[in-house]
């Protein structure tokens, strides 16, 4: 078991170490998310209206673009430095490499998102730090980052990858986003219908993660 997980953990630790050393990618994503939440807070009139119906959209738009922005860089750098080939040359299966890279991206993204939830709680004067919402954010992040990690592999060596990644990712993420936004609304006691949105989100996240795990070895084949 350790032999199987060990290489993935090595990739996770390596990616988190690199993310910390060269903070440009993830710091930019964090800065983008912070600015987006700040701008939204100025745009809405907190004194006169109930802004809770807007919050799910605010949060997931911010999380989605921050994730695409940062996630795209994780493979781009590996591709530029040729280190991705070194990963593929090792006896570790491509699937384990993928799991390691996706896990590192998910961890980094969750840090940004949880910080934004805290900031949004203050700025929107609404409690966004609840166990239910944290679970929803976790599920949505696993689903979206799994897919963007896969797609960033495919676009890493292409020209115009910064534009290509969102163009490929956004249509595929629509079902997951609908589930995430609705489930977030339900956690804020908004009227979102009777559908089990958190369950649907979990299914979409699982589908996205499983599909990415299966497709990754094919995506890296030359």
């Amino acid at each position: 078991m350790n032999e199987a997980i060990g290489p993935s953990m090595a990739v996770v630790m390596k990616d988190l170490r690199l993310a910390w050393r060269d903070r440009a990618g993830w710091a930019s994503a964090g800065a983008f998310a912070t600015i987006a939440v700040l701008v939204y807070s100025f745009a809405f009139d907190l004194a006169t209206g109930d802004i809770r119906p807007l919050l799910p959209g605010v949060l997931w738009t911010t999380f989605l673009f921050a994730g695409i922005f940062a996630g795209g860089q994780s493979f781009a750098r590996e591709s530029e430095e040729g280190t991705f080939d070194a990963l593929l040359l090792s006896p570790v299966s491509p699937t384990m490499v993928y799991l390691g890279k996706a896990a590192a991206n998910i961890i980094a993204m969750l840090v940004i998102e949880f910080l934004q939830l805290g900031l949004a709680t203050i700025l929107f004067d609404t409690n966004l730090v609840s166990l239910e919402l944290l679970v929803i954010v976790f599920l949505g992040t696993v689903g979206s980052v799994s897919l963007t990690t896969l797609l960033s592999t495919m676009s890493a060596s292409m020209r115009g990858r910064a534009m290509l990644l969102p163009v490929m990712a956004l249509p595929l993420l629509v079902p997951l986003l609908i589930g995430a936004v609705r489930a977030t609304g339900a956690s804020l006691n908004l009227e979102v219908g009777a559908a089990p949105w958190t369950l649907l989100l979990a299914v979409a996240a699982l589908w996205s993660a499983a599909l990415s795990v299966l497709l990754f070895p094919i995506a890296v084949e030359r």
Partner: peptide, 14 residues
């Protein structure tokens, strides 16, 4: 196998 390729395949920040 060990592979010594054209690119050094090393992490620059490490």
């Amino acid at each position: 196998i060990g592979v010594l390729a054209h690119a050094p395949m090393l992490y620059e920040e490490m």
